[in-house]
């Protein structure tokens, strides 16, 4: 059986399975996955990031499908191990599959995840509906003072998924999650 993410990402259809919010025994699997954080952004778990795509249970055990934010993301190997360990702790045999399709989008993050990111000091990427080139040049609010007058210092940052910006109002330098 395939379960959609409880409290799933906006705009993403549930792939088969149970109605959102209906309590099922698979909620335990999703709860287990929620204990796994992105090692590069430790305030976000892999479910609210949209990295954990699906959990399928059959006679052979549990299959967890993950997708990386960027295909060269070095964190995905750690996430695979930790997701497998989290499900194994519930007593299941587990297989982790990593797919590039459909490609992860910053739109796959939940709005709660965006808010956590902002409080962590990283400007989130606002939903772009696929218009990435436009989103790249759209105004970005400073996560510290909320002022919209910020500019790109470097299109590349400390990880593949971030760029570096500065705020003209408060003068702080901050990272922004790239729209992708």
């Amino acid at each position: 059986m395939v379960t959609g993410t409880p409290g799933r990402r906006e705009g993403m259809p549930v792939v088969g399975g149970v109605a959102p919010g209906a309590p099922t025994e698979d909620d335990a699997l999703w709860r287990a996955l929620r204990t796994v954080v992105d090692p590069e952004i430790p305030v976000l778990d892999i479910v609210e990031m949209g990295i954990a795509r699906s959990v399928v249970r059959d006679d052979a055990g549990v299959t967890v499908t993950l997708t990386p934010t960027f295909s060269a993301c070095p964190a995905i190997a750690v996430i695979e191990e930790e997701a497998a360990a989290a499900v194994r702790r519930l007593g299941h045999e587990v297989r982790v599959v990593t797919t590039l399709h459909p490609p992860w989008s910053s739109d796959d993050m939940t709005s709660a995840a965006r808010e956590k990111l902002r409080r962590f000091g990283i400007a989130p990427s606002e939903p772009h509906g696929g218009l990435i080139q436009i989103a790249l040049d759209a105004p970005v609010r400073c996560p510290h003072c909320d002022h919209p007058d910020t500019y790109v210092r470097n299109a590349f940052g400390s990880t593949l998924c971030r760029e570096i910006r500065s705020c003209r109002s408060c003068g702080e330098t901050f990272e922004r999650f790239k729209p992708i």
Binding site: F70, S71, A72, C73, R153, N154, F156, G157, L160, I164
Partner: peptide, 20 residues
């Protein structure tokens, strides 16, 4: 410094794509 970071990112991407 900015370009040092940018080139490291490009390198990481290209090598990641090679793995793909």
């Amino acid at each position: 410094l900015e370009e040092d970071i940018a080139l490291a990112n490009l390198a990481q991407d290209e090598i990641g794509h090679a793995i793909t």
